[in-house]
Each structure stands twice: as structure tokens, then as C-alpha cells.
Amino acid sequence: MAYTVQRDVRDQLRAWLPKIVLSPTIAILAIFVYGFILFTTYLSFSNSRMFPRYELVGWQNYEKLFNLRAWDIATTNLMIFGGLYIGICCILGLFLAILLDQRIRHEGFIRTIYLYPMALSFIVTGIAWKWFLDPGIGLEAVVHSWGWESFSFNWIKDRNMAVYTIVIAAVWQTSGFVMATFLAGLRGIDTEIMRAAEVDGASSFALYRRIVIPQLRPAFMSAFVVLAHMAIKSYDLVVALTNGGPGTSTEMPATFMYSYTFTRNLMGIGAASAEIMLLTIAAIIVPYLWSELREKKA
């Protein structure tokens, strides 16, 4: 009888131990993530300025937000940056993955080189590219020292071109990650299908266009979701590289949110911009998760 009781106690401990271990993490997540999301939502409907206020003003902050020229500039820059960033990363990552999939020599070393930038923080990447693109000390100065005096590359100082320098730095950092994602997808494709197509006389271009790339749809979706999420919340790279300038030419929603919340002391408008960013990310991630769950059930 005593042995049975001890066994029941041990079984109950085994069942409760994972819950006990995970409960602090779940509590912290609930408070400091979802709790603050709800708090930010509340602030977006309040008249908060330097400090939180709890007097609700309805949709006034959202109306003011969409009437601000700075928000229009930030969203336009995000569309330019996000479109180029996602498109170039996917194309370049796929190209590199196809090259590495040819079982070339020293593949592990080359793959490590491509993945290394992902180990750096966006702050380090932004500062490094800021030095490299600075006309006074970077690429332009080096080329001038070689004797090519007419060479000019001052995009980082040009209001019309500065946003493209952010694209260059972001692509440099994350294209290796996209390459690894596509390479994992390529290694998971059934080789028998490809061999059968080669026997039927399919060219390499047709092989990749009709067989390989369509089977990489999950990898494309994963890369798109990750890159879109990183583009929407891009803050540290922008601050380190251009600090939103020249002027507001590289302002992004994340830098707009920080500026209006902590610099201009318009916390209600800043919270409203944060909610728009959250809804945009949710509009990307939720359909992706729903399609993944549907495929697993099927």
C-alpha cells in the first residue's frame, strides 16, 4: 500500500514538474509581453503625452497619426525598404543556395562566411556600413586615393538615395540566413524526381523552374515572414546607419514610434503607431501560421 502511494506521488511530481519549471517563464511572458501589448493598446486611445494618462480620447490619436506627413514618409520608406530588402534577399539567397547545392569543395567554410554577418548585431552592421559609405573616409575616399577623382558614391548623404543604403546593409547581413533556409529546402527535395526529369531531357533551367523552385514554397514563405517581420521593426540598423536622415528621408515606423513617444512626448500617437506596426506583423504571421496548421492537419 505504501509503495503504491509513493508511486502515485512520483507520478504526480513527474506530471507537475514541467509545469512548475515553465510557470515563471509563462508568467513573465504574460506580463512583460502580452500585458504591455494590452497596455500600449490602451495608451493608443488615451491622451498620454510625456507620461501615461488614462483619459480616453477614442480614435483621435489614429486620426492625427494618419494626417502626419512624417508618418507618410515613414510608411513610404518602409514600402521601398521592405520590397527591395525581401526581394533582393530572396533572389540572392536562392542563387547562393543553388551554387552551394552543387556539392562544391569547402562548402562548410563558404557557408560559414555567408552566415557570419547574421551573428553581428544590426548596430555593428550599421556603424560599419556608415564608415564604409561615408564619402570622407569610406569607399569614395579610397577610390579617390587610387587616382579616380571623378568617382562619386555619396548615397548616404543624398536625401533621395539614403534609404537604399539601408537596403544594402540589411541585405548584406541577412542574405546568408535566407541562403541557409533555401539550402535546407533544396537538400530536402526528392532526388529521384530530379533524376527522372533529367532522363526525360529536361534542361537545368527547366528543372529548377518547374520542379525545384515550386517545391521550395515552404522555404520561401518562412523567409518572407522572417524578413517582413525584420523590415517592419527595423530600428537599430536605421539609427546606427543614418539616424533617420538626412532630414527625415530614412525615417521608418519604428524610429517614428520612438521619436514621438520619447522625444516629442506624444505617447498616445507613438502608441498608435506601435499598434499599426503590430497589426501589420499580425497580418503577415497569422495567415502563415494558419496555412501551416492546415497543412499539418491535411
Rank of each mutant, 00 (worst) to 15 (best):
178 V>C: 02
170 A>G: 15
177 F>Q: 07
177 F>I: 04
164 Y>R: 10
169 A>C: 12
166 I>S: 09
157 K>C: 00
179 M>P: 05
177 F>H: 08
178 V>K: 03
170 A>I: 04
182 F>D: 04
167 V>K: 05
157 K>G: 02
171 V>P: 03
157 K>V: 04
158 D>K: 08
155 W>S: 05
178 V>N: 04
162 A>K: 05
166 I>Q: 08
175 S>F: 15
182 F>N: 08
156 I>L: 13
164 Y>D: 11
183 L>E: 02
180 A>N: 04
167 V>T: 10
174 T>G: 03
181 T>Q: 09
167 V>C: 07
182 F>K: 10
164 Y>A: 11
175 S>C: 14
177 F>E: 01
168 I>F: 14
163 V>E: 04
183 L>A: 05
155 W>C: 03
181 T>E: 00
167 V>Q: 05
170 A>H: 04
182 F>G: 02
175 S>V: 15
157 K>L: 09
173 Q>Y: 05
159 R>V: 12
184 A>Y: 01
174 T>R: 09
175 S>L: 11
162 A>L: 11
159 R>A: 14
165 T>K: 01
180 A>S: 13
160 N>D: 15
156 I>N: 01
177 F>D: 00
172 W>F: 14
183 L>N: 05
176 G>T: 13
178 V>S: 01
165 T>E: 01
160 N>V: 03
179 M>Y: 09
173 Q>S: 00
161 M>R: 12
162 A>W: 11
184 A>G: 13
168 I>Q: 07
155 W>H: 06
173 Q>T: 04
178 V>W: 04
181 T>L: 14
158 D>M: 06
161 M>P: 01
171 V>R: 08
182 F>W: 12
167 V>L: 08
172 W>S: 09
180 A>G: 02
154 N>K: 13
155 W>T: 07
172 W>E: 12
156 I>D: 01
169 A>Q: 10
183 L>C: 05
184 A>C: 02
181 T>V: 14
154 N>S: 15
169 A>L: 12
155 W>A: 14
173 Q>H: 09
167 V>R: 06
171 V>K: 10
169 A>K: 12
173 Q>N: 07
160 N>P: 00
178 V>G: 01
169 A>Y: 11
175 S>D: 00
183 L>P: 00
171 V>C: 13
164 Y>N: 10
160 N>Y: 15
157 K>M: 07
177 F>M: 13
165 T>M: 06
159 R>E: 13
156 I>P: 00
182 F>S: 06
171 V>M: 11
180 A>T: 07
173 Q>G: 03
174 T>F: 15
176 G>F: 11
178 V>M: 05
183 L>F: 08
163 V>Q: 07
166 I>P: 03
169 A>G: 11
162 A>C: 13
156 I>Q: 01
159 R>L: 07
177 F>S: 03
183 L>V: 04
175 S>K: 12
164 Y>W: 15
160 N>H: 14
163 V>F: 04
173 Q>R: 15
155 W>D: 05
177 F>A: 04
162 A>D: 10
183 L>H: 06
184 A>N: 04
166 I>N: 12
168 I>P: 00
167 V>S: 05
171 V>S: 10
159 R>Y: 08
181 T>A: 10
181 T>H: 00
165 T>Y: 01
166 I>D: 09
171 V>F: 12
172 W>N: 10
166 I>K: 02
175 S>P: 00
